[in-house]
Design a protein around this nucleic acid. Sequence first.
DNA 1: CCAAAATTTAAACAATTGTTTAATTTTTTC
DNA 2: GAAAAAATTAAACAATTGTTTAAATTTTGG
Lengths: 215, 215
Amino acid sequence: MRRASQSVDMKRDQSTEEKIKAAAKKVFMTKGFDGCSVRDIAKEVGSNVALLNYYFRSKEKLFELIFEGAMSDFLQSMIAVFSSDLTLKEKVEQLIDKEFSFFLEHPELPMFILQSLHQNKTDAPMPSHFLEPIANTGIFEQFEKAKAQGEVRDISIRNVTLLLMSNVHYPFMSKKLTMQFHGITAKDFDEDLKKHKEIVKELITNYLFISNTKA
Amino acid sequence: MRRASQSVDMKRDQSTEEKIKAAAKKVFMTKGFDGCSVRDIAKEVGSNVALLNYYFRSKEKLFELIFEGAMSDFLQSMIAVFSSDLTLKEKVEQLIDKEFSFFLEHPELPMFILQSLHQNKTDAPMPSHFLEPIANTGIFEQFEKAKAQGEVRDISIRNVTLLLMSNVHYPFMSKKLTMQFHGITAKDFDEDLKKHKEIVKELITNYLFISNTKA
DNA sequence: CCAAAATTTAAACAATTGTTTAATTTTTTC
DNA sequence: GAAAAAATTAAACAATTGTTTAAATTTTGG
């Protein structure tokens, strides 16, 4: 009688399963795994608790699904930029722009990802199907080449990543802290965000790329 | 018969109350408010659950106490630097150094603060006794003065703060993500951290401070 | 040393947790 | 349109949650 969301019967009503996923995403993202009950999610769906287990077996399984999707989104926005055929500098600038507009649409994502990992809500290491697409864009080679040619400062790709992530993820995680810290409104903060993006773009490109217009 | 940790009887055994606070801090910091039960904390203390309520009335009250302490620590490390009589540039450099060594000792702090605020685990706005000491150091005036004198780029203090916090807090929050992302060990990451600190120091001071040795 | 106060404990509380069962309703299939 | 399958529900489950009660123990003060 029971099924467990096999892809055999894709023809069957998809909307319930999708509705649950959407509700779970919303609730998990805002309250975290520990911060919500399956009944919270069921209420958001507008139906019974047992239905969640009918489709997804357990709260944990449902969470893992949502988390994987979130992680996918999280990394997706990078890939598009990297796989274009721009110069490295253009890619960095575009990455910052794209990441900012992406996180403006999904402001809870960085906090959700980082805190889920922090509290080991997911045990599995990041699956290679997340990372390979990035590596496959050839961005790492492009970077090493630019470094060898003296276009780019001698800095490891890992440190570049940390630099970019810090300045792109953190602002969206720190909204409440920053608002309280400066006693400003959400509107004020959003203005600061815009400015921050421009600052970061100039800051990082200036630092990374060695200008050959020296005089 | 009951008391609620009034400061009247400070003479009385302080060690139990302190032991509970220490255990609560440890557990809350690693698992979050929702991620632990009061029995987890009691087990960490090595005693009964009822004792927590005896001293702190409720899980929430205990949490608020721990959170306030954490927030205090969180901001404290800034104040020491700001109230010294260094130049602005020296203060920024010192701040980055001090924050990094502080968070090396308390790596969970940024995540704990940000995620507690994010999920509204504390309703009260940041008390002024946290912020006033910072304002009282005169750091804001020093900054505006340096800006007026052309020593510092035209940028708002709020954006400077966001820039600094991004680069100082985020790395400690992103350890798991970064390790998975690059497939590196904790040791590798700690090396990256050191390097990141130096990069950020150069990056930010270069950007903020206008060099007058122009030729 | 002894009563009073403070501390600590074990046990129970009602509510909530994730999950399962079994019955019911809806949809599909022939 | 009737039998079979799938979807949905209500109800119950045992376990865990935060909190309270009342009894037991320890510490204090005269």
